[in-house]
Amino acid sequence: MRRHRERHVGERVGWLRAAVLGANDGILSTAGLVVGVASADATLASVMVAGVAGLVAGALSMATGEYVSVSSQSDAERAERELEQHELATDAHGEREELVNIYVGRGLDRPLAEQVADKLTAHDALGAHLRDELGLTEAQRARPLQAALTSALCFSIGAALPLIAALLAPPAHMGLTVAISSLVSLAVLGAVAARAGGAPMLQGALRVLVWSALAMVATAAIGRLFGVNT
Rank of each mutant, 00 (worst) to 15 (best):
L112G: 00
T43Q: 09
A79N: 09
P144M: 12
G94T: 08
A53C: 13
M48F: 13
V100T: 10
G105Y: 01
G107N: 05
A139C: 02
Q146F: 03
P144W: 12
D132C: 02
S72L: 14
E77R: 13
A40E: 05
A76W: 12
V47A: 07
A53I: 10
G127N: 10
L108K: 00
V104F: 01
S61P: 10
R96S: 09
V70S: 05
V104A: 01
E77M: 11
V49I: 15
E97D: 12
L88Q: 08
G36T: 09
L120H: 04
D124R: 09
H93E: 15
A57V: 14
R141M: 07
N101M: 11
R143N: 10
D109E: 15
G65C: 07
A42R: 11
E97G: 04
L134A: 13
A89K: 08
E133R: 08
Y67H: 15
Q115H: 06
A59H: 08
G107F: 00
L44T: 08
Q73S: 12
G135N: 11
V35N: 02
L108E: 01
I102V: 15
R110N: 03
V47P: 03
A53K: 07
S61E: 06
L44D: 04
N101E: 15
G54S: 08
G105W: 02
L99S: 06
R131K: 14
T137N: 09
R110I: 04
T90F: 11
L99H: 03
P144F: 13
S39H: 07
D91G: 08
R78M: 10
A139Y: 06
A53Y: 11
P111M: 06
E77P: 03
L55V: 11
A125S: 14
E80T: 15
S71I: 06
V49T: 09
L99R: 01
T137K: 07
V49M: 08
Q85D: 07
T43W: 05
S39C: 14
E77V: 07
P144A: 11
D132L: 03
A76D: 12
Q85K: 13
S69V: 08
R81S: 11
L145A: 15
D91S: 14
R81I: 11
R143A: 13
E77I: 05
A38D: 10
Y103P: 01
E138D: 15
Y103Q: 00
E80V: 13
L99G: 02
T43F: 06
L130D: 01
A113K: 02
E77Y: 12
D118M: 01
S69T: 12
G54A: 10
Q146G: 08
L83D: 05
A63G: 10
L88S: 05
L112W: 04
A117D: 00
S46M: 12
E138W: 06
G107S: 04
G135K: 07
R131M: 12
D75C: 04
A117P: 01
N101G: 00
V47G: 04
A79I: 09
L130Y: 02
A122C: 02
S74W: 11
H123V: 13
D124F: 14
L99D: 03
A57G: 15
L120T: 02
D109W: 01
E138S: 13
H129R: 03
R143C: 03
E114M: 00
G135L: 12
E77G: 04
E138L: 14
A42W: 06
T121G: 13
S69C: 09
T121I: 08
D41E: 14
L88W: 12
L88P: 05
E138Q: 14
A117F: 01
L83G: 00
